[in-house]
Design a protein around this nucleic acid. Structure first.
Ligand code: MN
Ligand code: MN
Ligand code: ZN
Ligand code: ZN
Lengths: 124, 124
DNA sequence: ATCCAGTATTGGATAAAGTCCAAGGTCATA
DNA sequence: TATGACCTTGGACTTTATCCAATACTGGAT
């Protein structure tokens, strides 16, 4: 555990946190000015491999890093500002996919992304 | 309607078609050798604006272009080879998100991505 | 059939996100 | 202190996508 890794871990602490690698780097630099982008990418990659952090692709640009890897969850995204919330829908979407729609795949996982407009953007 | 646009439209014809811009360009070049990448990107962007084609982000790399914009559907992705099938699950995932999990958002849409292993990859 | 204004296409430059690498730094152990 | 394993760094490189100025094309008016 180096100072660099500790800083990346600190930046990724919290709820509803879904930062891009670049955002992680900016915030890490505020705490440890000389940390490099390469180290941020390396550390994020290690955390993902360890299962401590999830990669999420809620927009079609940069990957986002999600420290909430403990409890499975899905995402609610504001189409205007990009804010992302963790959500826990009821039901079991896996069970909703009939065999006739599985094309012989062994299906093991499902991701659900809800889209809408957040209260802030709706007010503006 | 120019020859270039016609070729892009032809390339995007079919079922379970989810090509990247680069794949569209390669196939378009096979039919019209001098078509440029810029025109492919322009045309894809127009088709998306018109609602004739959807952008899908099933992997975390290039966007994919989906001509099946007529009937809403979701996707089943092979985690190994990337093959993508259109699927129509039962149930209504939007209804599965309780108000208490909406954070005041006006939720209007939901995307579901199933992940698994396709028969080909399972056999190998 | 020809002209022309508007639109489309092109190649190359640029940008954004991410990966790779060789060089050098750090740290525990001996 | 010397060693070796591992970590960090900056920059080069790759991939994907966008932007732009110059050129080519199109379709309607004459
Ligand atoms: Mn999350
Ligand atoms: Mn599809
Ligand atoms: Zn918003
Ligand atoms: Zn497969």
């Amino acid at each position: 555990m180096t100072a660099q890794r500790r800083v990346v871990a600190e930046v990724l602490d919290g709820e509803h946190v879904h930062l891009t690698a670049d955002e992680v780097h900016s915030r890490a630099v505020a705490k440890l000015p000389e940390i490099s982008r390469a180290t941020v990418y390396n550390t994020l990659g290690e955390l993902v491999s360890l299962g401590e952090v999830l990669e999420v692709a809620t927009d079609k640009r940069a990957k986002r890093y999600d420290p909430n890897a403990h409890r499975p969850h899905h995402h609610l995204v504001c189409a205007q500002c990009g804010e992302i919330k963790d959500v826990h829908p009821g039901g079991n979407p896996l069970a909703d996919l009939p065999d006739s729609e599985r094309f012989g795949f062994k299906v093991s996982d499902v991701e659900v992304t809800y889209r809408g407009v957040c209260p802030n953007c709706a007010a503006a």
